[in-house]
Computed example of a mutant assay.
Amino acid sequence: MSMALYAASQRSSSTDEGRVTQHSFSFGPHYDPANLGFGPLVCHNDDVLDRGAGYPEHPHSELEIVTWVLEGALVHTDSTGARHVVEAGRAQVLSAGSGIRHSEVADASSGRCRFLQAWLVPTEPGAEPSYVLGEAPAPVSGPAEVVGGTGLPIGTRGARLLVARLAPGQSVALPEDPRQHVFAATGAVSVGGRSLRAGDAVRITDEPGHVVRASEETELLVWSFDDISAS
Rank of each mutant, 00 (worst) to 15 (best):
A173H: 01
A188F: 03
V189G: 01
G158S: 12
G169K: 01
G148F: 01
R157E: 13
A164E: 10
P175M: 02
P129S: 14
R157C: 02
A127S: 09
Q180Y: 07
A136M: 04
S130Q: 05
L162Q: 15
R165M: 13
E124K: 03
P137N: 10
P129C: 10
G155Q: 15
E145Q: 13
G158D: 07
V132W: 01
V189Y: 00
A188S: 15
G187Q: 04
I154V: 15
A136K: 15
A136Q: 12
T150W: 01
V132E: 00
G148S: 05
T156A: 15
P175I: 00
L174H: 11
P153N: 08
S141E: 14
P137R: 09
S171D: 08
G187C: 05
G148E: 11
S171H: 06
R165G: 11
A167P: 07
E128F: 09
T150L: 04
A136P: 14
L152W: 03
G169C: 03
R165V: 12
T156F: 09
T156L: 12
E128S: 09
L166G: 00
T123V: 02
E128I: 12
V140N: 10
G151M: 12
Y131K: 07
L133P: 02
G134R: 02
P178F: 01
L133Q: 14
V163H: 10
A184Q: 02
P125R: 09
G158N: 14
A138E: 10
L133F: 04
T186A: 11
A173Y: 03
P168I: 14
E145L: 04
A127Q: 11
V147H: 00
A167H: 15
G134Q: 01
L133G: 07
A159W: 08
P175F: 03
T156Y: 05
G126I: 07
A185F: 08
V189Q: 04
P153W: 06
V182S: 11
E135P: 02
A185R: 08
H181W: 15
V140W: 08
P129G: 10
V172E: 04
D177C: 01
P139E: 08
P168W: 06
A185P: 10
R165K: 12
